[in-house]
Each structure stands twice: as structure tokens, then as C-alpha cells.
């Protein structure tokens, strides 16, 4: 059954193929420098935050929606987390988590119960949450808690300290990947595919549509907040604009990874590949000395190409 759940191996192999081609291209171009472990490692590390945000986006896109609030939640939860630093450590995480659960829950309820389009709900939430981040943080980046508490050393060491030679940040990202994969193996997670595939069928098959969708939105928000805390660890401050690029990048990664915006299709493995493909691509463009200016254009073309190929496949 899990084979049916996750993939089409063929699609995944195709993505891996694309990634390998990109990597070999990069290797030739850089005369092997690209393949140095440190370089590959760096590419991975640079994209961990996107990876986690994209996993949340994946949940929503599979359910047939779209999440335009990912970026705002990343920024907001970073700011909130830093401001909470005066309290004892477990409390900071718990409060940050609670707030984010409420945000995701509101989106979920509006989409599921009031039946508003996911695009509009998450767009509105993105404005609201971004605004909240500015309100609580005074509009700028924050470096300490409200009464001056230092940012927790644990968080600041996420990218620096290692466990078995791996930075904590990487371990967290891997745990998120495993976590979301496992979630898709539970009934609630599995049903995300069901409601995204055909909500009416899901309803009459007895799938608890309301609960499934609200959980997906809450989970996506939690993943975004993890990404937000990782951002704090990486740069040492909370910035409301931390996630500005993440919303569209995450949508891009998920769609390049084979998910369909009409819902019901998409995989964790594909999304991971999508993130890595975008990451390697950026790296290649840098190596080619393509000015960083034109890079958004190349990214745009790649997204179009990937989705075009997917849409052709579905037609036949």
C-alpha cells in the first residue's frame, strides 16, 4: 500500500535523474570542485529552512489548497520566539507553538467550515501575521527578549554545534522530513490525499474532511514556525521579513517536485528533490558567473518547464 501512497517510483526517478544531470553538469563545469563534500554539504545546509517550509506547503497543496502565509509565519514565529527569550526555555517553545497552532487553526476553519478559497484565506492571514510580527517586534528585527533576555544558546548553536558530525539544523530538517512522511502513513495524513483527490468521494467514504483539513493547516503552520526558529538560529535575530521569498519558493519547490496545484498529488520525496534541484541550480548559476540578477528569471523558466512537462504527462 505504501507504494501507492507515496509514489509512482517513475516520477521520483525522473526527478533524481534531473538532479544527477544537474550535479554532473556542475561537476564538469567546476572541474570537480562542486563534488567536494563541503560544497554539497553547504548547498544542503543553505536550503534547510526552505526544505521545512516546503514540507508544510506540500501538505496544503496535496489537500487541494495553497498556502500563501508560509513566509509570514516564518518571520512572525522567529520574532515571537526571540521576544519570548526572557522565559524559561520550555515555555518559549510551548507558547510559540500554541500561537502558531491558533494561526493555522484559523486558516483551516475558514477554508473548511466557512468554505472560503484557500488562496484568499492564506493571503489575508499572510497580511495579518506579517502585521502581527511588526506589531510585537516594533517593526524591526529583534535581538533580545522583551526585557533583554539573550537568545537561547541552544538555538544559536543550531547551525554550529554538531551531533555525530551533523549540525543540529540538518538533523531537525531530517526529522521533519521523517515526521511528515510518517504523518502521511497515519489515517489523518493519508486522508489529505483523499480530500485533495476528490473531496465529495472522501466525505461519503466517511473521511472526517473537516478534521483532516484543519490538521493539515495547523501542521503546515507548525512546520513554518520551526523554519522560523531555524532562521533565528542561523542569523541570530528575529526578522519579520525573514520569510519573504519562502512562500513562492516553497510553492515552486513543491510543484517542481511533481505535486499538482489541483490537489491529491505530491510526495515528500519529490518535494525534497524539488528543493535540492532549485538549490543546485542556484549554485550552478553562481558558478557560471551568471549574475545573481538573472537568477530569478532562470528559476521562473525552470518552474514553467517542470509544470509544463507534468501537465503534458497528465493529458496523455
Amino acid at each position: 500500500m505504501n507504494k501507492n501512497l507515496s509514489v509512482n517510483m517513475k516520477d521520483l526517478l525522473k526527478l533524481i535523474g534531473v538532479l544527477l544531470i544537474l550535479i554532473s553538469f556542475a561537476a564538469i563545469l567546476s572541474k570537480g570542485v562542486f563534488l567536494r563534500p563541503i560544497n554539497l554539504f553547504n548547498i544542503t545546509i543553505q536550503n534547510l529552512i526552505l526544505m521545512i517550509a516546503a514540507l508544510g506547503q506540500l501538505l496544503i497543496i496535496i489537500s487541494g489548497g495553497i498556502d500563501l502565509s508560509v513566509g509570514s509565519i516564518v518571520g512572525f514565529s522567529g520574532v515571537l520566539f526571540v521576544l519570548l527569550q526572557d522565559m524559561t526555555e520550555p515555555l518559549t517553545y510551548i507558547i510559540a507553538l500554541m500561537v502558531v497552532i491558533i494561526i493555522g487553526g484559523i486558516s483551516g476553519v475558514l477554508v473548511t467550515c466557512v468554505k472560503l478559497p484557500s488562496f484568499v484565506v492564506t493571503m489575508a492571514m499572510s497580511y495579518i501575521v506579517f502585521s502581527l510580527a511588526k506589531i510585537i517586534g516594533g517593526g524591526a528585527s529583534v535581538y533580545t527578549g522583551i526585557s533583554g533576555g539573550e537568545i537561547s544558546a541552544t538555538v544559536l548553536s543550531l547551525y554550529k554545534s554538531h551531533f555525530l558530525g551533523l549540525p543540529y539544523a540538518l538533523i531537525i530538517a531530517v526529522l521533519c522530513i521523517i515526521g511528515v512522511s510518517l504523518y502521511f502513513r497515519t489515517s489523518m495524513g493519508h486522508f489529505i490525499y483523499t480530500i485533495g483527490g476528490n473531496e465529495k468521494t472522501a466525505l461519503l467514504s466517511g473521511v472526517p474532511v473537516v478534521r483532516v483539513r484543519i490538521s493539515a493547516y495547523i501542521l503546515a503552520a507548525i512546520l513554518a514556525s520551526i523554519a522560523g526558529i531555524m532562521f533565528v538560529g542561523r542569523v541570530g535575530l528575529g526578522d519579520p521579513q525573514a520569510g519573504d521569498l519562502l512562500t513562492l519558493d516553497s510553492i515552486a519547490a513543491v510543484t517542481v517536485g511533481g505535486a499538482s496545484l489541483s490537489g491529491g498529488v505530491g510526495t515528500v520525496a519529490g518535494t525534497v528533490m524539488g528543493v535540492l534541484i532549485l538549490g543546485v541550480l542556484n549554485n550552478i548559476l553562481n558558478m557560471l558567473n551568471v549574475s545573481p540578477s538573472i537568477q530569478p528569471a532562470v528559476k521562473g523558466i525552470i518552474i514553467l518547464l517542470a509544470v509544463y512537462l507534468n501537465s503534458r504527462k497528465n493529458r496523455s
Binding site: M1, N4, T194, G197, K200, T201, L204, G264, V265
Partner: peptide, 11 residues
Amino acid sequence: GEGIIAERSVI
């Protein structure tokens, strides 16, 4: 419209 999810497998 309400019985199957066309894209998914039979099982």
C-alpha cells in the same frame, strides 16, 4: 464524482 478518486489506485 462521489464514488472514486480517479487518479489513485484501485486498492
